[in-house]
Amino acid sequence: MLEIRDLSVFIQTDNSEKEVVSHVNFTVPQGKIVGIVGESGSGKSMLCNAIMQLFRQNRRYTGDIIYKGTSLLAKSEREMRHLRGKEISLIMQNPMAMFNPIVKIGDHFVETLQSHERISKHHARKRAAEQLARFQLPEDELLDRYPHELSGGMLQRIMIALAACMQPNLLIADEPTTALDTMTQMDILDELLHFHQKTKTSMLIVSHDLGVIAKMADFIAVMRRGVVVEYGPAEWVLAQPAHSYTQALLAARDEHGDLEKLADSWEGTTIGPLYEYKPGCWVREEG
């Protein structure tokens, strides 16, 4: 459905140009999840923004991005606007900065809905509430809150709900779990998976954490310094990494893989008082 063909992205500054994505090739098949993993600065966000065709003024592209048979690079800004949010949605890195601090949460939904269809404010608010409820968020409480009143984890969930509110065909999630604590990370990933299973939306998930990608993706692309060094079905990449960088990533993951397993296996809810299970250490009873 989405095909990246030999794509290079150049950032143009006043008097120079910098290649941040270099000759990248991969596809996102209909209904599948593709994961991109790579270290900080490897060009993951640049790739996501390129697909959305954001920041066009100071970017230059070579190669092509094909969505449903047509080139996104060739589309006008007007056409792109109609695609963004409706056909292709992006969950951006760092949710704390992505909401306008002086605009209520509800209005972020309303403006998105009103930009894509003729709908009254009243109806848009109702749709927003439904959408929040779909993601198990307390809708009546959130709509009239301001972003700074909410936690990072909460904003991340709202951002997912917001990006998904027009039922896009392709959802791009740029580091959806970075800067969140481990438990919240798990919750958010579960929610994304749940959403994927329910709607069969194609997804492109980006992370520097191989654990996250391994959990979610059907296909994995490994990026380093703007180049995709390895790409293939998840099982293959994880089982038989071909590139030394992938091997290094996997080795690094295994060192704390046990911790994640432990966290994963933990399913109970906490009840009861704290008790001291050995001198100086306290824990809550599990139900």
Binding site: L54, R84, S89
Partner: peptide, 19 residues
């Protein structure tokens, strides 16, 4: 950044400027 996110949601330019 939040303007970039608004654009990524396809919000109309007139709304972006005004709101």
């Amino acid at each position: 950044p939040h303007i970039a996110f608004a654009r990524a949601r396809g919000v109309k330019e007139s709304i972006i400027i005004r709101r």
